[in-house]
């Protein structure tokens, strides 16, 4: 009996301790964001390169996905709304679901699949090949030079790409709306405006930033867990991606609670 309770306690602690470590690491990184020394020429260059790889390079694919998703979602939403005679709820559906839920979700999935995995592997490789030692020996702070540019890039990319996704989807919505309902541009915009809530937009932006923060911080943290062996790289990436997925679900749930309370 006592052994069982001990095992339960051990299992709980083994799960909770890494989480505590991650949260401590997150706090440290977050506080360093406001450190002036972070913003030097080297960090800026890393940020620009990271942003280029995360947001600009992906742009054609991202826009393509946004157009496809936008057409599908709008088509389905408009048909359902039309069939059920719920045209009055069109604005709420578009603003409440497509903009505030779907856009960040699709964006975070794309960024996580592409950039989080890359960051995870990159940090793990740097750890295995002792490149992190190089930076430390030259007194280059890992958080300032390596982590914060990546995390800021994640946050900014999430916000910008989500907004872009939402704009594309809403633009397609305008097109579908005029084709299905014969709605004018003004009427469509009025419908959206009526359902747009500044608080929802603020929560959306905070959610995007939180997504961006954690989907880059977790791969960095898990990448640092790699040992000196090459075989530890895939393990680190695998663990990192699983944790990224859990973080996405957690943030999504928390933001929903925040919105609907």
């Amino acid at each position: 009996m006592i052994t069982t309770i001990e095992n339960i306690g051990k299992a709980f602690l083994s799960k909770i301790l890494p989480l505590r470590g991650t949260l401590q690491f997150a706090t440290r990184v977050f506080l360093n964001i406001f450190d002036r020394r972070t913003y030097n020429s080297a960090s800026r260059m890393v940020f620009i390169h990271q942003f280029y790889f995360t947001s600009v390079q992906i742009l054609p694919l991202f826009l393509f996905v946004a157009v496809i998703f936008g057409s599908l979602i709008n088509g389905m939403a408009f048909q359902v709304v039309k069939n059920l005679g719920l045209s009055d709820y069109l604005g709420r559906l578009l603003m409440g679901f497509v903009v505030t839920e779907l856009s960040p979700f699709v964006t975070v999935l794309l960024i996580a699949l592409r950039s989080s995995s890359a960051i995870n592997a990159e940090i793990a490789v740097m750890k295995v090949s002792r490149e992190l030692n190089t930076l430390e020996s030259f007194r280059i702070d890992l958080i300032h030079y390596l982590f914060i540019p990546r995390i800021l890039n994640g946050m900014l990319s999430m916000v910008l790409l989500t907004s872009l996704f939402a704009l594309v989807v809403l633009s397609i919505g305008l097109l579908v709306s005029s084709l299905v309902f014969g709605t004018s541009v003004d009427a469509y915009i009025d419908t959206l405006l009526h359902s747009a809530d500044v608080l929802d937009i603020v929560i959306l932006l905070i959610k995007c930033a939180a997504f961006g923060f954690f989907i880059t911080l977790i791969p960095i943290r898990l990448g640092l867990n790699a040992s000196q062996e090459l075989t530890s790289i895939p393990v680190a990436v695998l663990n990192g991606m699983v944790k990224v997925f859990l973080a996405i679900v957690t943030i999504e749930a928390l933001s929903s609670i925040l919105r609907f309370i």
Partner: peptide
């Protein structure tokens, strides 16, 4: 070139938002 593209993207997207 990267700086230009990044700058352009941030400017346009920020403007749209």
């Amino acid at each position: 070139r990267i700086e230009f593209k990044v700058g352009l993207f941030i400017t346009i997207t920020s403007f749209l938002i």
